[in-house]
Computed example of a mutant assay.
Amino acid sequence: MIRSIAPDDTAALIALAKAAIPFEPNEIEELSDLLTRHFDDAVNSHDFWLTDDDNGLVSVVYVAPERMTQGTWNLYLIAVHPDRQQQGRGTAILAHVEQMLAKRGERLLLVETAGTEDFEYVRAFYRHQGYVEEARIRDFYADSVDKIVFRKQLSADG
């Protein structure tokens, strides 16, 4: 069941993210801060967090609009618990987000990832979902760690 996250999901969401992604401690702290700000400003917030709940959090996605654009959104986080990967969960929650945004008339969804060999499976996932590599910024994250930006058109206006 894909649903919006609730404040009570915070600890489980952070545990899921830690299990699925090799976050550094400062990145986990940033994730926690993002969740706190989201819930503190939920009334005025345009971003959204969704989870796939199957008697416990299985996947999570976080998207937010790109400032000063018309209809461009960023996918900042998508994670599937390692025990549930390769079951279509990531595909399902990403498709759900794309459909929600398209229904609202949004135009583009952007996602960035690292250009290292160990992230090839991530890039392959996005290509399989219809995303096209739009840009590469060399040495972005660190020396020899490029940032790769993927783009998907959500509406005919994109």
Rank of each mutant, 00 (worst) to 15 (best):
E120Q: 09
A79L: 07
V122Y: 05
N55K: 08
K18C: 13
A124G: 05
E134K: 05
P82F: 14
R107A: 11
N55I: 09
S32L: 07
V111E: 00
A6G: 06
A42W: 06
A156D: 06
R136N: 02
A64M: 08
N55S: 14
R138G: 07
G158D: 13
D146K: 01
D53L: 15
T113R: 00
A95F: 10
D47H: 08
L109I: 14
Y62W: 15
D157I: 15
G56F: 14
F48P: 00
E29D: 04
I14F: 03
H81V: 15
L94W: 04
I78L: 11
Q86Y: 08
D41I: 14
D9G: 09
A92C: 06
F48C: 06
V60P: 00
W49T: 04
H96L: 12
S59Y: 13
K147Y: 07
F119A: 03
D83A: 13
H46R: 10
K18D: 04
S144F: 11
L75I: 10
V97N: 01
R3V: 10
L94M: 08
E66W: 08
A114C: 07
P25L: 13
P22L: 15
I21G: 03
V111K: 01
H81S: 09
N26R: 03
V58Y: 05
T113K: 00
T116E: 02
T116A: 05
F48K: 00
A142V: 13
D157P: 03
I14Q: 00
D146W: 02
K103C: 08
R89Y: 06
Q87L: 13
R107C: 10
A95C: 12
V97G: 03
V61D: 01
R67K: 07
V43M: 10
T91G: 02
T10M: 13
L34I: 12
H81W: 11
N55C: 12
V80T: 15
K152I: 13
A19S: 09
E117P: 00
A15Y: 03
A79K: 00
N44L: 13
R123E: 05
E98T: 02
Q70T: 12
D40N: 07
L77G: 01
A6D: 04
Q85D: 05
L110V: 14
A64R: 03
A142W: 04
T72E: 06
K147C: 12
L31C: 07
N44A: 14
I5G: 02
K152D: 02
D118L: 10
R138V: 14
Q99F: 09
Q87P: 00
E30Q: 08
D157T: 12
E133T: 02
E133Y: 01
G90S: 05
L77E: 00
E29M: 07
D9N: 02
